[in-house]
Design a protein around this nucleic acid. Structure first.
Lengths: 203, 203
DNA sequence: CGGATCTCTGGACGACTGTCAAGACATTCT
DNA sequence: AGAATGTCTTGACAGTCGTCCAGAGATCCG
């Protein structure tokens, strides 16, 4: 039907605009952080004016939430190809550690935004549900890596998924801070430490 | 001399007021977080008016910096008594893990403020120097625990201090988020996980 | 075509921010 | 005592913020 097609196009354009705005907002958020990012700044770094934000999103918190969910989808599958392709335990360990270091350097703005949002959720209850949701997805992502790694090594993880994720996340956050402080060796150090840690998590 | 005495009293009162204001600010910061805390809010939660803040501190960032440094002094020696008193490795491990869980629950507001400031320093260069300074002090604090633990166990740490601190910090941050999300078991879980982790860090 | 609907603009609003300064009050010194 | 200095209050400032709205364009439909 013509009307259906037209309406679908409408809705599609509407959704497109939303994600377009969200991606624009994500880069701004990655640069300035959650607290210092204003809707006007987001609009200025996009091709729209500040008024249009409230046409596509009811409030700032809805925009942020949408952004965070959009960002989540990209993150969660980051290591799935590595898990699928690795032939040996050492292979998986090396490529995982390398990928970890790579994303640290290549997407540091997005990562610090994630840490920002997670920390803000400690103060702002509105953010908590989304943050916990993403955190759980990240934990499962790490768990897929670790359990496959243990499988390839012929044993099983020696820690639960929450603990394993917390340990690796601690390494990553520290490396990110070092990288942003200007430490050129942060990526390589993270790679080495991740390689060092992984064998300790199985047995 | 009278003048010396008087002036010393002046300076003392001046410093007293500064720390008084800083402690008042710290509780407000712990409740609202770095970004949402305004000078007027700080003043309102103290016995002063908002103008007096600029009498004792040149700017907001100077107040925050002073607060953070003041807070640091309390943190860094938290486990020193435990290190000094523990007779066996298992003793040290148990009391350290217990203390970790205790401070998680008792001072969660201060801890989330620390994570807030550390994350903000990823965006705001002004904070970076202080944050890195405190982070190093915390790392050394953990290192004192771990090296003594290894000594009592008759071996030595199997990781460098930065890595060991990053791992424990990862555990702690995750536990804090869980605790603030309402998980009643967060403290006990942290204790168990810390006890589980410590033996893996020596060998 | 003309009317209806969607999309977007630009300005306005009230609230809040850090900073500052003029003056009131208190304390100290000569 | 009075002068000088230290301490604090109050109000104002210029700016930014999220939100809202009247209306201009654009697009679609009959």
């Amino acid at each position: 039907m013509a009307t259906t097609t037209a309406r679908r196009t409408r809705e599609e354009r509407y959704d497109e605009r939303r994600t377009q705005l969200a991606e624009s907002a994500l880069t701004t958020l990655g640069e300035l952080g959650y607290a210092r990012t204003s809707l006007r700044e987001i609009a200025q770094n996009s091709e729209f004016t500040h008024g249009v934000v409230h046409y596509y999103f009811a409030s700032k918190i809805e925009l942020i939430t949408f952004c965070v969910r959009h960002y989540k989808a990209q993150c969660v599958t980051r290591y799935d190809a590595i898990v699928a392709e690795a032939a040996t335990a050492d292979d998986l360990r090396a490529s995982f550690a390398a990928k970890l270091a790579e994303t640290l350097l290549a997407e540091s703005a997005m990562h610090r935004l994630w840490y920002d949002l997670r920390t803000q959720s400690m103060f702002e209850a509105d953010l908590r549900a989304d943050v916990v949701d993403i955190d759980r997805a990240l934990e499962q992502m790490i768990w897929r890596v670790l359990s496959r790694y243990a499988e390839l090594a012929g044993c099983s993880p020696s820690l639960d998924s929450a603990t394993a994720y917390a340990l690796l996340d601690g390494l990553f956050e520290k490396a990110l801070l070092a990288h942003l402080t200007g430490a050129a060796e942060a990526g390589e150090q993270l790679r080495q430490r991740a390689e060092q840690l992984l064998p300790m998590l199985i047995g």
